[in-house]
Simulated scan of single mutants.
Amino acid sequence: MNRLTAILSTFVMLVLMTACGSVPPAPTDRFYRLQPVQVPSAPVALSGAVAVHAFSADSLYAERPIIYSEEASQRQLRQYHYHLWLYPPAQLVRENFLASLGGALNLAGDGQAPNVIDGRIVNLERVLSGRNSTAVVALELSLKTGGRTRLQKTYRAEQRASDDTLGAFAVAMEQALGKIYSEFLADVAQSR
């Protein structure tokens, strides 16, 4: 009986060791950042410096996982488990905004300035459809001068990715943000 118990114990240990060895490794986290985009470099005529307050984002858009939906069911949003923005989206988009518009606005940092820009992420996601995805972004941007609202508008842009990778999606997101920044600058120039 002892010999049978020893054989069964050895067999069970071998099965357990084999099962442990067949588990695939956990996927690697992948982080994505946004590069500055080219926007019209002519400075916008604003009297005084411009402060850009911290952007805000709500719900899923405040979290680092990249959000996606499928074109056929855009009401349902999902998060990738291993594909993350480098920083929370509100910080990521604000830093991209500053880096992209630094030549067009007389930026004063976070301090006091006669002109203040506030931003809120309304939409920042990947829409899957067929072979390539689309970057969809919407930002609510406002400009106050001397405490008075000079401009407040929600800007929306979409950009098709060049292929189905998340790297191409990040580039498409940069391009979509560039469209928003250009439209915002045009509106600021006309909002006297």
Rank of each mutant, 00 (worst) to 15 (best):
H81I: 08
A138C: 07
Q175R: 14
K179N: 07
I67W: 02
P25H: 10
G167A: 15
N123P: 11
Q152R: 15
P89E: 06
S142N: 02
E70L: 10
A90T: 15
V39N: 03
P114F: 05
P36H: 04
P89C: 04
R64E: 00
L124V: 06
C20H: 13
L101M: 11
E71H: 13
D118H: 11
S129K: 11
S100E: 04
L107T: 11
R78N: 12
S56K: 10
L98M: 11
S22E: 06
Y32W: 11
R160A: 14
V136A: 11
S133T: 01
D110N: 11
E183N: 05
T145M: 12
L101R: 03
E125P: 00
S142Q: 05
Y68L: 04
A138Y: 05
N132R: 08
N123D: 15
A170K: 06
A172Y: 02
A19F: 08
I180N: 10
L143E: 04
E125Q: 12
G130M: 01
L139R: 04
L86A: 15
K179F: 02
A168N: 03
F31W: 15
L128M: 07
A135P: 00
M13C: 12
R148W: 04
M1Y: 12
E158C: 02
Y61M: 14
P24Q: 12
Q175M: 06
A19N: 10
V171Y: 01
F11H: 01
D164K: 03
S129D: 09
S133V: 00
Q74I: 05
Q152N: 12
A104Q: 12
D29Q: 13
I67C: 05
Q35E: 14
V44H: 04
E70Y: 08
T28M: 13
Q112A: 13
E183S: 06
N132F: 00
L84F: 13
S142M: 01
T28W: 08
P25T: 11
R192M: 07
